[in-house]
Write a protein that binds this DNA or RNA. Structure first.
Length: 209
DNA sequence: ATCCCGAGGG
DNA sequence: CCCTCTGGAT
């Protein structure tokens, strides 16, 4: 896809949704970090179902440490993957509490060193909490980028690199949310809604027609 | 049966 | 590189 088409594609997404927001609910960087860790292989609806009670019991790092792994599991059981997620949330809370005054650091290397925080989660936190133009490649962005023909890589890391090269800078900051929302509600995994797709004009999947 | 805002461990 | 973690929704 050439530059003019890429600009047109992202302009269409921007026009439809000028200020895209993620759908995970939180009231602080700490809560957002925890919500993103919990979102691994789970839906946002599921995360938003359990976080009100979790954050009522433990709104910050210190109280999350006090709640303990068992208390965390009680709150998040219906999400799945609860043993490892509870372990990670408790351990990262303890590190933030003991070493970072309970604050989430604006630093990729430190974020990725936290238990349960990989590249994708760090990219989301850097973007949403600290305003950096990072691009988090989750399951939706990965699928959509490949369908559109914006990337061919076989790993999220490879696709992130391709997208960073192909998405014009002016669109980079919002690109994650535009792509994830489009992937979630239109270009879904099982049944892509091509008939109601705003960017089908530029989609490699439909080029043959 | 497949997918969900993945990460850690082998 | 692959496997596992795990329940809920479709």
């Amino acid at each position: 896809m050439n530059l003019a088409d890429r600009v047109a594609l992202f302009s269409a997404l921007r026009q439809a949704n000028p200020e895209p927001k993620g759908e995970l609910r939180s009231e602080s960087p700490f809560q957002h970090l925890v919500a993103v860790v919990l979102s691994a292989q789970s839906t946002d609806v599921g995360v938003n179902r359990v976080t009100p009670e979790l954050f009522r019991r433990a709104p910050n790092a210190a109280s999350m440490v006090a709640l303990g792994e068992t208390g965390i599991i009680e709150c998040i059981r219906s999400l799945g993957l609860y043993n490892s997620k509870a372990k990670h949330v408790w351990a990262l809370s303890r590190i933030l509490h003991e070493q970072y005054q309970g604050q989430v650091p604006d630093d990729r290397a430190i974020l990725e060193s936290l238990p349960g925080v990989g590249r994708k989660t760090a990219n989301v936190v850097l973007n949403v909490c600290f305003g950096h133009p990072t691009l988090a490649v989750d399951t939706h962005v990965f699928r959509l980028a490949r369908r559109l023909g914006l990337a061919q890589g076989k790993t999220p890391t490879a696709v992130e690199k391709e997208l960073l090269e192909k998405i014009p800078e002016e669109f980079l900051y919002h690109a994650h949310h535009w792509l994830i929302l489009h992937g979630r509600y239109v270009c879904t995994a099982r049944k892509p809604g091509c008939d109601r797709c705003l960017i089908a004009t530029w989609c490699a999947k439909l080029e043959i027609d």
